[in-house]
Structures are given as C-alpha cells and as structure tokens.
Amino acid sequence: MADPMRIRATLTGDTVEVKVLMSHPMETGLRKDADGKLVPAHYIDTVKASYNGKDVMTAEWGPAVSKNPFLAFRFKGGSKGEKVTVTWHDTAGDTRTDEAAIQ
C-alpha cells in the first residue's frame, strides 16, 4: 500500500487552495533498470478531489507527470473545518484516499 498523501487546504477570502503531494514512483514504462530490462509502467492515471460530496477537480494523467506528483488547484465555496477528500488510482489497480480539513 502506498504512503499517505500530504494534503493542505487553505481558505483565503472565498477561495480554497488545495495542495497535494502524493507518494508514487510514476514509472513511464520506458526506463531501463541496471540490468537493461524495461521497468514496467506504473503511474497514477486518475485523480479525483471532492468537497461535500461534490467533485471539485478530476484529472486524467499520463506517465509524464513527475515522480511523487505535486498538484495544486483552487475552488470556491469552501468553509473552514470542512474536509477535502483526494483519491488517486494507478495503472496497477492500487488506489488511495486521504482527506484534510480546510484551514
């Protein structure tokens, strides 16, 4: 199981800025290891963030997103103390969900 995400959600005015740091190798499937064998592709292909049961951001990723992906996005209409939930799914079928309270 993958390591937890680090999520920070801050409220400024009426906008919530969410910063997410995921822990994932993001293998492209094109890289070779020390023995010259191809490392199989293993990357996050979908990310979903929701607030109050409503999607505030969804993303489709390819292997070209950097290792240990960082992501920031903004949405309107959040309030302090409420939770933002982020879920990712990768090409190996793994999935992880974490949440953070808006500060």
């Binding site: 409503k54 969804t58 070209a64 997103v65 960082f70």
Partner: peptide, 27 residues
Amino acid sequence: SEKNPHALSAVFNIPEGAEAYVMTRVK
C-alpha cells in the same frame, strides 16, 4: 509537450465552482 514519447502529460477537468488554476510538475 510535443517531443515527449506521448505528447499529452495530464488532463484536468474543472467542474463548475472550481477555478481554472492548476499547478503541477511534469517530465
């Protein structure tokens, strides 16, 4: 990025109520 093995790196869908703002890191 056109010179990558596959041009498209990432797609972000912006639902209503969200701002058209994204920050990330790519290869």
